[in-house]
Nucleic acid binder design. Structure first.
Lengths: 160, 160
DNA sequence: GTGTGTGCAAATACTTTGCACTACA
DNA sequence: TGTAGTGCAAAGTATTTGCACACAC
């Protein structure tokens, strides 16, 4: 684990403790797995990784801890189509996801324009947007489309 | 059932038969339930309604038929957050959904601008958009926000 | 008639929960 | 040391499937 990750875990633990959450061996293991994860693992995968740190961690505890951390806004749960929920730490800025239908890879992106439009649309219907979900299920484009060189990065957008 | 619905069911049955799909009592029952549904019922609710027409319809058959109809693009499945999948006939134009977090009500909307942006974003990342999912989880706005009188209906957008 | 569709019950996949024991604060 | 957390096994929820019988074409 890099120093960065160790720091991230320490900060998370401190914040949780301040909120009265006990840091057990199992929770510490899961927190460091989550901090180290650059991807979007599901509960089973997180369990597998946590076991490498502490073999005693059970799958129930993984689920219980994930729910707890979700409630504390430490992790975010994503229920993509026809697959178990996948998790990521909630420290990054809000973003949406592109799911590669062939590989299952998840690419993060953010579009200021889409965020704005969504809020507008909700308001137009007399609603206040609490949260949203936007997933683009895609397949790698052919040679013509989406040439990297032609790409114009729009202000307010980024690639995750 | 209105004449419109009867016609809709007849057209669906014809189209399915032409594709070699047998129209059984159970499938006919489900088709008429689907044609009559103005909402987004889940499998259990569709089962309940289908039983009113033909008491012999089993839940397995409802699931099997829904999968079949989904494959034939006759119905669309929507897996909203933390709830069983909900279904609607696929005859209407493509649209996205606002989900009222308090009542579970589903409001349909369509935004040409969002559709365009999604395709653009996928292309920018070297992907071809196969399909997407966009759901706005909302709560009724307070008296200030979203005044109906102030609403500007943007070209290309409609309310379902 | 014949092959597809059906009901039923059991299986599946993911997730939650009851209970007795453990360990953090 | 007391209460919140844990592992385990069992239950729960949504959905799918194997099998013998039924029925649409």
């Amino acid at each position: 684990m890099s120093g960065d990750q160790a720091q991230k875990v320490a900060a998370l633990e401190r914040a949780l403790r301040d909120k009265g959450v006990r840091i057990t061996r199992q929770r510490a293991a899961l927190l460091s797995v989550l901090a180290a994860a650059g991807d979007h693992p599901d509960a089973t995968e997180l369990h597998r990784r946590a076991r490498e740190i502490d073999a005693s961690v059970s799958l129930s505890t993984v689920y219980r801890t994930l729910s707890l951390l979700e409630g504390q806004s430490v992790v975010q749960r994503h229920a993509f189509e026809g697959a178990p929920s996948r998790f990521e730490t909630a420290d990054a800025a809000h973003h949406d996801h592109i799911i590669d239908l062939e590989t299952g890879d998840v690419i993060e992106f953010y579009s200021e324009r889409i965020e704005r439009l969504q809020a507008e649309i909700a308001a137009e219907h007399g609603y206040e947007l609490v949260h949203h979900r936007m997933e683009l299920y895609c397949r790698k484009a052919g040679p013509r489309a989406g040439k990297r060189g032609r790409r114009r990065r729009s202000e307010g957008d980024f690639e995750g």
